[in-house]
Simulated assay, not measured.
Amino acid sequence: MRYCLKIFSCLWLVVFLSACSSSGINHSDRYSMRHDSAPLRVPTELEMQDAIVTEVSKSASAGRAYTVNGKNYTPMLDETGYSEEGIASWYGRKFHGYHTSNGEVYDMFAMTAAHKTLPLPSFVKVTNTSNGKSVIVRVNDRGPFHDDRLIDLSYAAAYKLGYYHHGTAKVKLEAITMPDSTARLSYIQVAAGSTLKNIEALAYTLRQQYQLPTNIVEKDAIYRLRLGPIKNAEQAQQVLEKLKQDQFKNAFLLYSQ
């Protein structure tokens, strides 16, 4: 009996130590590299082709509000009409092969990107404002979590835009969606002004407050800020009334058709 107990105790000890060892591996630092770096080769011409825009199902889990480093983020419900300028960075070998925020596997040679609030997945056209080069990427990850950065591109996308050596670049983002010829979309013109910086700041505030995309239209050196598109006419009217109750008494509705 003692012999059996001794064997059982030894077997239990082996299993326990194995479990501890496995647990240690699974719960160690997620990434094998401490610092990010570029791959050992350049992207091929095929890898630098634009992402193909398709109908996609949005990730419900990636659409929930979340907190990173004490800062709260609320993803957009709809990216239609979204346009914004800011700083782009890129990420490479450290994250290659690991899962993105919507469950896909990150490939530094694929045309993908990370954004803090765009729906996952979604598609955006990214233009390097310094050289005019552009690329269409599939947004399938969250980040970059730096206040001064707007989007993180894959290495291949950054290579195509010509800023992989510099690390960052000033870019313009424009959401790309599948055409919907039957929908009559509503917009709300909220404000207009001659100072782009002020209009962009207001656009950011309204996106956070109303969870709707914004776009800025320039004509004759005047920048017009529009909230939308809004697919539901009743919602558009409710948002308009709310804006009028605040400080935007001159806000008015516009329609796409």
Rank of each mutant, 00 (worst) to 15 (best):
A156T: 08
H99I: 05
V126C: 02
K160H: 05
T80P: 00
E241F: 11
P144V: 04
M108C: 10
P119T: 01
V124N: 00
T80F: 03
P39K: 07
N26S: 13
P75G: 04
A157N: 06
D152G: 08
R226V: 00
L161P: 00
Q189Y: 05
L161V: 05
Y164N: 13
I87C: 09
A88C: 03
C10Y: 14
P144N: 07
K133I: 04
N198D: 10
S186L: 06
V239E: 02
A203R: 02
S256T: 08
G92T: 02
R138D: 06
C4T: 13
V239C: 03
G167T: 07
T214K: 00
E55V: 12
P179I: 11
S194V: 12
N128P: 03
T214I: 02
V124I: 04
E241A: 13
D152W: 09
A169T: 10
C4A: 15
R2H: 12
E218Y: 05
L227S: 02
K170N: 12
N140I: 09
S154H: 09
M48N: 10
S101V: 06
M108H: 06
K133D: 09
A191Q: 15
A169C: 10
M33I: 09
D36Q: 04
T74P: 05
A236C: 07
L225F: 04
I216E: 03
N69A: 12
E85A: 13
A62H: 10
I230T: 08
D107G: 14
A233W: 09
D29Y: 13
H35K: 14
Y31K: 01
V239S: 03
M108N: 04
K249D: 10
D78C: 05
A114T: 09
V239N: 01
S122I: 03
A38L: 12
R207D: 07
K71T: 15
L13Q: 05
S186F: 10
G132E: 01
A110K: 14
S194Y: 12
A65N: 14
G86C: 03
V190I: 07
A156E: 07
R224F: 03
D141Y: 09
P213E: 04
L254I: 11
S28L: 09
A233T: 13
F252C: 08
V217A: 10
S22H: 14
Q208H: 14
S57R: 15
I25H: 14
A65I: 09
L120C: 06
Y255K: 08
T168S: 11
Y66C: 11
E85R: 15
L227M: 05
Y210T: 02
A19C: 14
K244W: 00
L150V: 05
A191M: 13
F252Q: 12
S18K: 06
S28N: 13
A110Y: 04
W90Y: 10
G228E: 02
R142Y: 03
